[in-house]
């Protein structure tokens, strides 16, 4: 799932080398993904009214659900 998030985000930003994702388990089934991108790419991963961030969350949540897990995506600014 981390790979999927990373893959999508790298396609969206101008500085793919600055994309950094850390996983933090919370409880048995939940994983928090902390997403860091270059400052000038923040807008790109958030999008207008947060639409991009939400779409990314929906996709990651779907992938997690398929594997019987839940996930939280946090964008670090």
């Amino acid at each position: 799932m981390k790979e999927l998030l990373e893959y999508m985000v790298k396609e969206l930003v101008d500085n793919p080398n600055d994309v950094e994702i850390t996983e933090e388990p919370e409880g048995d089934k939940t994983v928090i993904y902390k997403l860091k991108v270059a400052e000038n790419d923040l807008g790109k991963v958030i999008g207008k009214k947060g639409r991009t961030a939400n779409a990314l969350r929906v996709i990651i949540r779907a992938a997690s659900a398929k594997r019987g897990k839940s996930s939280i995506v946090k964008i670090i600014d």
Binding site: M8, E11, L12, G47, R51, T52, N54, A55, L56, V58, I59, A62
Partner: peptide, 16 residues
């Protein structure tokens, strides 16, 4: 809902 999200991201990348 999930298909919509995928479509949105795909179009963002395609436009980019």
């Amino acid at each position: 809902k999930n298909m919509e999200a995928i479509e949105y991201i795909v179009n963002l990348v395609a436009r980019r």
